[in-house]
Design a protein around this nucleic acid. Structure first.
Lengths: 337, 337
DNA sequence: TCATGGGGTTACAACGTTGCTAGTCTGACC
DNA sequence: GGTCAGACTAGCAACGTTGTAACCCCATGA
């Protein structure tokens, strides 16, 4: 039924161990032996059995990716990028959705699925810096996102503060002075919300504009519906503003929807900028200016770092790596005439 | 280092095979033996080794999901649903992206990754009905989508024709008479495009409206950008229309963007309906009427069918299963006053 | 009393691979 | 000519699990 090393060996007239040597590119295999074996492999359509290989070697050739949920465009596009990079490295990706629930995030770290992978790319949402201890695990782990910074592990993240500052400066450069923020998380210091908010704050204060609480709206999860709802709350407060910095694109698109519903002209009356550069941002009306946080770069850096740790080649202390960001200017922030 | 059956057996004072029997719920294990073994398992934190189990039993406990790309919201949301259902069945999902490329789709069917899974959920895009033969594989396979209907395999799909007819009727009921179609694929008979177009056609003809080629616009891949571009082509043709049926939501959102750019009032001058009910459809402006094709139902049916085939419990001939659809009426098709 | 049967448990042999070790052979060197 | 290094190949023993078949023992019925 299934073709094994032994079958190949019989056909090639060598021992099955020699076939194994050929497959694993051992040195000291004579060229003609290698040729014989390879043609036998070809003839029989031999494929190494991954379970047997894993059992013996302790490697699975797979990595895990734990994210909140694929329905969020950012994570879907991140997963896309991770899978694509991993494929180039002959590695498969096993996706787990945690829903941002701390309990399920812990399970992603310690659950039974870990056995099926050699390491994990972990993007927590429910766990925070106070949980950094749980990251002390005995398998290769690369942390993504901005929920935890004090963990004893490699961490690939984006330049949240600098990028948020740049986003805010982009609005300021367009002549805006009263810039609202959508998507804050009350009291959060680190975490995407806290970091981006602090970037915002440093930009406006550098421009001599005082920070105004009334312009900052909390939102729960960063879905469109929460962006819409937050914008409604902001409008209902009756404060005036001429720009909005939504802390991610989904929030921005939800907020944009409400702005236009209430017949604000965007960008003439209100400019809006998002964060993430999801594909969709190009196709809203107006198209959405946003921050490209370097998603593909993050995927590449994270996968490569994880694979190096798995191979044991990399024995450096835990790394903190940041991707490069850029402002993608589109219609939603066209400067005032 | 790792805890094995033997360690548990030693602690419990039984043979390692008895431990195996306990774990696999074999009948004929005395209650007190079971208790002893279970407490030993607990004490040592024993976890069965999946590679060893796979090697011996031939089962991996994983299924594959091959889709064009996760960046397309429909597939991201489908993957979300599949992973969620599979998790409830203690099964992990291994996602492969084919990019809709026939070569990579074939690889998904025959490639090395198949070894890591017990079966495959396969949503082709590049392969068509003429390739049905390649689906004759020796592992459990459940086909998704509407590219291939003549395959010798289980197939879970949506009611494309009926749903498209209902979508068109929804527009007709709103008083629209000149309904354009965006996203056709020239000459396609089956496939989502072909089927949905034929549903459209049967609806308008039943309403006594002749089919007009000038109203039907081709588009390549169903991305926003193609929807936008197709809408531009349609407008450039100079034909008049009072409604648009976009064959999926992404096309609809791209088209909507162009309509509003060109200052059409939606839905007053032009109504638009999509297909898929992606999350985003609720947050566009105007919100997008669409067809809910029963994505969660598809995921559940497909996973359960695949798992039954894997267990060998299901020996029926290949099944054709269809999910239930519904029209989700939103602002973009508000009826004419 | 002895065969019978079945509950409960166990020994043994795989599953297909790789790490380690040991071997054989050739050619070069002193 | 003998020794030795190095190139090349092979044998054995795991890795941790499950299927098969066998075992023991006690209760039952003849």
């Amino acid at each position: 039924m299934t073709v094994t090393l032994r079958d190949v060996a019989d056909l090639a007239g060598v021992s099955f161990k020699t076939v194994s040597n050929v497959i694993n590119n051992h040195p000291h295999v004579a060229a003609d032996t290698r040729a014989k074996v390879e043609s036998a492999i070809e003839r029989l359509g031999y494929r190494p059995n991954r379970s047997a290989r894993s059992l013996r070697s302790g490697r699975t050739g797979a990595i895990g990716l734990a994210v909140p949920e694929l329905s969020l465009a950012y994570f879907a596009e991140l997963a896309d990028a991770v899978i694509t990079v991993a494929e180039e490295r002959e590695t498969v990706v096993l996706i787990e959705q945690t829903g941002g629930d701390p309990r399920r995030e812990l399970e992603a770290l310690h659950g039974a699925r870990r056995q099926m992978t050699d390491g994990l790319l972990f993007s927590p949402l429910g766990l925070g810096n106070e949980d950094a201890g749980v990251l002390a695990v005995d398998f290769p782990l690369v942390l993504l996102g901005e929920r935890i910074f004090d963990g004893p592990v490699d961490h690939v993240t984006m330049e949240n503060v600098d990028a948020a500052r740049a986003a805010t400066e982009h609005l300021l450069a367009g002549g805006r002075r009263r810039i609202a923020v959508i998507g804050a998380h009350e009291g959060e210091v680190i975490g995407s919300a806290g970091l981006r908010l602090s970037g915002y704050r440093s930009a406006i204060e550098a421009a001599g504009i005082p920070y105004d609480d009334a312009l900052v709206v909390d939102a729960g999860p960063w879905h469109r519906r929460n962006g819409a709802e937050a914008m409604r709350r902001l409008l209902d407060r009756g404060v005036s503003f001429d720009a909005v910095f939504a802390l991610n694109d989904e929030l921005a698109l939800g907020a944009l929807r409400v702005l236009r519903e209430r017949e604000f002209r965007v960008p003439e009356q209100v400019a809006i900028i998002g964060f993430d550069d999801v594909d969709e941002a190009q196709y809203s009306l107006p198209s959405l200016t946003t921050v490209d946080p370097g998603r593909r770069e993050i995927a590449r850096l994270a996968v490569d770092l994880l694979l190096e740790r798995i191979q044991g080649a990399d024995t450096r202390p835990p790394q903190q790596i940041r991707s490069h960001f850029g402002i993608v200017a589109r219609e939603s922030t066209d400067p005032l005439a």
